[in-house]
Simulated assay, not measured.
Amino acid sequence: MPKTKKEGLYFGLMMCFGMAVVMGMYNMIRSGQYEQLTFGQLVLGLLLAFVVAFVVELVIVGPFARKLAFKLPFTKKKKVIMILTISTLMVIGMVLCMSAFGLIMSHSALGGASWSEYGENVWKNFVVAYPLQLLIMGPVVRFLFVKFVQKTAPVSLGS
C-alpha cells in the first residue's frame, strides 16, 4: 500500500501506534498491572511499548515478513491475498517479539513473571492481535493512511 519509503514509515508508525496501545492496555489489564500503575507509569509503559514495537517492526519483523511473503508459492497478483499474508506474518512475528518484551517488562515491574508463561502469553496475545489487526486496526489505518497521508496524483479535467 505505501509507495515510498516515507509513506512506509508513516504507515508503520500508524499501525504500530494503534496495535501497541491496544495490545499494551490488554496486557496490562490481563496481568493486573493496570490497577497498580499511576497514569504517568501507564503512559510511559505504552510509549515504551510503542517505541520497541516500531523498532522491532521496522528492523526485524517487517522486512522478514515481506521477504517471506514474496517467497511463498502462491500468485502475488491478488492484492487482498498479499495483504492477508503479510498481515498474518507480521502478527506472528510481532506477537513472538512483543510477548517477550512484555514478559521482561512484567518481570521488572512485578518481579513474578517467568519464561514458563511465555507460551501462554503468546497464545493469548495472538488470539487478540490477529483479529484486531485484520478486522479493526488494518482497515482503520489503511483508511486513514489513504485519506490523510498518501499523496495521490491530481485528477486531470481535460487536455
Rank of each mutant, 00 (worst) to 15 (best):
P63D: 03
M98S: 01
M25L: 14
N125E: 12
G40W: 06
M82L: 12
M98C: 01
I104S: 00
L103Q: 09
W123A: 13
L47N: 06
G102D: 15
I86R: 01
M23W: 12
G102C: 07
E117K: 00
T75M: 09
S116A: 10
F64K: 07
I104N: 00
V127E: 11
A49W: 05
F74C: 05
F17K: 03
M23P: 15
K124T: 09
V122A: 00
G112Y: 03
M19C: 08
G18D: 10
S31A: 13
Y34N: 13
L44T: 15
F126G: 02
V140Q: 04
I92D: 00
K79C: 03
R142T: 04
K78H: 13
V141C: 05
L48V: 14
S87G: 12
N27V: 08
A113F: 10
L103A: 03
V140M: 11
M23Q: 14
M105C: 04
R30W: 05
F143V: 09
Y118E: 09
S87P: 12
K76T: 06
I81S: 11
A65C: 03
L72I: 13
L47W: 04
I81D: 14
N27E: 13
I92F: 00
L144T: 09
I60Q: 09
L48H: 11
V22E: 07
P73F: 00
